[in-house]
Amino acid sequence: MPQPEAALFVTCLADLMRPEVGFAAAALIARAGFSVVVPPQGCCGQPNYNAGDKEGARTLARAAIAALERFETVVVPSGSCGGMIAKHYPHLFDADDPWRARAEAVAGRTLELTQFLARHPLPDAPKRPAGRIAYHDSCSARREMGILAEPRQLIAAHTAGEIVEIADAEACCGFGGLFCVKYPEISARMASEKTAAIAASGADMLVAADLGCLLNLGGTLQREGAPIAVKHIAELLAGEP
């Protein structure tokens, strides 16, 4: 039987800033028994959507829908971009716009990476040591996509790491896309409160499933000189490349 196909929508941040997250995600999707396809792709349109440029968001969404709609499964290694496609795309188009049905179809087939791996489990493999892991939920994964147990179960199942919870875990890290550039002072305050909570958790590694949070928190930890490693959950689960 041929392997089912899954499209990897890699996200701009992984594409540009952390290609290794894209490769790790591709490796995990393959390990789960899927043939990975990376269709030519751009941005999901969230920056425009969040800035009030709905028409711009529609333009970018149409391009993404056209690139993704032939796949039965679309995997996104980000709750934020995943939520944009799975939750917001249908709202971009009026009910009588033919793009509405196409947006709904793609939305219904789009899964965030840990959601995908919870449905299509990885084969068992020896658990690698991973130390004390603080897992940070992105707001979009937690509240928009309702993802809470999946990443923790994956970490417990595939690593020998111990998960420590971060105090006030529901609080936002302060990234917020353009927010961190438009309101740097508030963003920095939110980030430093989060890094303080991470440090207080006793973790030696911070793991999350969204690169926005990770670039924000990792960069803040680095500036603070905190000895805490930072990894995307795809990298953690896939192992060192």
């Binding site: 992984a14 594409d15 290609p19 990376v38 550039v181 920095a188 670039l215 680095q222």
Partner: peptide
């Protein structure tokens, strides 16, 4: 430019190679 607001309180580790899409292909 505006990116300076990001690095006002954070470091940024640069990407370790070309973009994912170019390397994948």
């Amino acid at each position: 430019l505006a990116g300076g607001n990001f690095t006002a309180s954070r470091d940024l580790t640069p990407p370790a190679g070309g973009t994912f899409q170019s390397r994948w292909r």
